[in-house]
Design a protein around this nucleic acid. Structure first.
Lengths: 121, 121
DNA sequence: TCAACGTATTGACGAGCTTCGATATAGTAT
DNA sequence: ATACTATATCGAAGCTCGTCAATACGTTGA
């Protein structure tokens, strides 16, 4: 039986795992990855991405506004965040702005997220 | 060529996609999924989970505190959030509290996240 | 030119999150 | 008992995020 957890020898003032076996992600890597999670951490943004995924290339802001429980400035705000994160792009056509998913960018985020989560469970 | 995007016929005051083709996630589903993302949306929590993943069953709070850029009450706070989310559990042994990952819970979150992201890109 | 329209931006407000000092709780060693 | 230890909780301060009314901007149609 390898890797027996040996807690009996612990004395006060002693750290459990004294050495580098606790080596972990750098704070920078953790920060970057948490940003990857955070951009998906809002229901309105999830719904926007879902709608864009189901209606590729045909969705303008007024459509989103009609389907979402927030007002137009808020929709524009979340669209801007998603655009700055690189997850979506838009194409202006006259008055309308048609939004669509940047599939490559989403795939990259999904890969980073999966790579982190997989070893955990 | 199916699914041609037909933007020429648009007139003012008309929504692009008038019908149910925009059908999307329910707000409740979006809220629940965004919570799944949010619990991973902090660098300290990501580092905690990473350390617990690498040192199964041997990590106590003082170890985490030593490796993280925050003070002990903050570590305890994030541990509590992770515990309430079901992602980790702990086992008290004398003065020490040994934390470990709930692998099944992490796997469930990962499945929900992947199921959402996969169709997008 | 002018009014109506779709979208983006600004500014302000409220809510929630993160952090930490202080303190509480509970186990250990002398 | 007493002093010390490890962890949890409390309370407050600071900060970020989400929201929307008001407004700005650019386009369209008359």
């Amino acid at each position: 039986m390898t890797n027996t957890i040996d807690r009996e020898e612990r004395t006060l003032g002693t750290r459990c795992c004294g050495d580098t076996s606790l080596a972990h992600m750098t704070p920078a890597a953790a920060q970057e990855l948490s940003d990857d999670f955070l951009i998906f951490g809002h229901p309105v943004r999830l719904q926007i991405l879902d709608m864009l995924g189901r209606n590729r290339g045909q969705v303008c802001v007024c459509d989103l506004e009609a389907a979402l429980p927030v007002k137009q400035p808020t929709v524009s705000h979340h669209l801007k965040l998603l655009r700055e994160a690189g997850l979506i792009d838009c194409e202006r056509q006259g008055l309308w702005a048609y939004y669509f998913i940047n599939q490559a960018a989403v795939a990259r985020r999904r890969a980073a997220i999966t790579e982190y989560l997989q070893p955990l469970g």
